[in-house]
Design a protein around this nucleic acid. Structure first.
Length: 366
DNA sequence: AAGGCTATCAACCGCGCGCGC
DNA sequence: TGCGCGCGCGGTTGATAGCCT
């Protein structure tokens, strides 16, 4: 038996939506919600099929849609997620709040894909096309890097999905702060050390051969995060992810004429002071965070203007460091940091290529 | 100025999955 | 267990604006 059409095609309008149609759809959904898309058009007085209405709502009329130019940060996230998830636009869209999968897909096809091709990177595999990248043993070093990163991120995404599930049970009501508690820092340090673990268990950061435990991740990806945070039950979640209520004040106080602030440290200065963000506004207690941004920072390595203008001093007996910004004009810290980010943006694309060309042994992550 | 080409993005189409019966 | 329905997703198309010759 053939598939029945989603709606009666006879007499239904196709093509661009008129403002009147938009108004009707918007008014109906605002009053009644969309309910069944199939039934919506007739109820709303529209000569459209339900699918068309759904699409129009999701991609255009929804009030929480962000339109306009993609920011560099968004571009970075799209590229990173595409490398990990492929053409799973809806999955990618969940990590970019207020952007639709259609918009991301279009942006990828019209901008990012072409840019990667131009740079000699295959947009499908995200592998460099250049044969000169072959290492002595005949393997793509950078490809292996990305592959390892992908496996790690896949494991993280799975773990995150689990945490979302669990967090609904936990019903934590507060948002998370940055890893400012020593315990929180320890977790993240463990995570990164875990990446570097050579199969002998978490925490062997001294291991000279820094290879990802890819087999372990492959066998049981979700176990990795569980291992890192020391358990997956409700208690451990409460224990591990401490609420940091004073964080907001700490952040707001940044750069108000005082060119010094305290930031947490992970392994080096690759962590940022931005709060952990949720991938979903409804799941604010889910630790998702600036992990991808963190990845990007790793890609950028430490050779940026930040290190030229700021220095980090470790405090005694704790894991925090003091960030001291040196500016001739005594500008506030946040302005200096803004400058650094601007510089960072300029070299972003260069660095992607550089990373692809670089040997993994040169990077702290590998 | 006009025709052709390219880029962009809204919208369509078909497939697959999940759910209820 | 199988089937149909509704929905969501990803690939593709088509209209149009902007640029180039």
């Amino acid at each position: 038996m053939g598939r029945s059409p989603c709606c009666d095609k006879v007499g239904l309008k196709k093509g661009p939506w008129t403002p009147e149609e938009d108004e009707k759809l918007l008014a109906y959904i605002q009053e009644h919600g969309h309910g069944s898309w199939r039934a919506l058009p007739s109820k709303a007085g529209l000569q459209r099929c339900g699918k068309s209405c759904r699409l129009r709502w999701i991609n255009y009329l929804r009030p929480d849609i962000k339109r306009g130019k993609f920011t560099l940060q968004e571009e970075q996230t799209i590229i990173q997620l595409h490398a990990l998830l492929g053409n799973r636009w809806s999955a990618i869209a969940t990590h970019l709040s207020k952007r639709t999968d259609n918009e991301i897909k279009n942006y990828w096809n019209t901008h990012l894909k072409k840019r990667l091709i131009k740079m000699g990177i295959d947009p499908v595999s995200h592998k460099p096309k250049n044969d000169t990248l072959l290492s002595n043993d005949g393997h793509f070093k950078s490809t292996a890097n990305l592959s390892h990163m992908a496996q790690w991120e896949s494991a993280r995404l799975e773990a995150e999905a689990r945490l979302v599930k669990q967090s609904k049970v936990c019903s934590l009501t507060s948002t998370f702060g940055p890893p400012s508690s020593s315990r929180h820092l320890e977790i993240h340090n463990k995570a990164w050390n875990g990446i570097l673990d050579n199969g002998n268990g978490i925490g062997d950061s001294e291991s000279s051969s820094s290879t990802l435990s890819t087999n372990r991740l492959k066998d049981n990806p979700s176990s990795f995060y569980e291992l890192v945070v020391g358990g997956s039950n409700e208690e451990s979640l409460h224990e591990e992810y401490e609420v940091v209520p004073e964080y907001k004040d700490q952040k707001n106080g940044m750069g108000q004429g005082v060119n010094e602030m305290t930031i947490p440290t992970i392994d080096d200065n690759t962590w940022t002071t931005e709060p952990l963000q949720s991938s979903n506004d409804n799941d604010q207690h889910v630790p998702n965070g600036n992990f991808l941004e963190h990845f990007t920072d790793l890609l950028l390595c430490s050779k940026n203007s930040f290190s030229d203008r700021c220095s980090l001093t470790r405090s005694d007996n704790n894991s925090d460091v003091d960030l001291v910004c040196n500016d001739k004009n005594d500008r506030p810290t946040h302005e200096i940091i803004d400058d650094c980010y601007e510089d960072k943006n300029k070299i972003y694309w260069d660095n992607i290529l550089n990373m692809a060309n670089a040997s993994p042994s040169n990077h702290p992550m590998f």
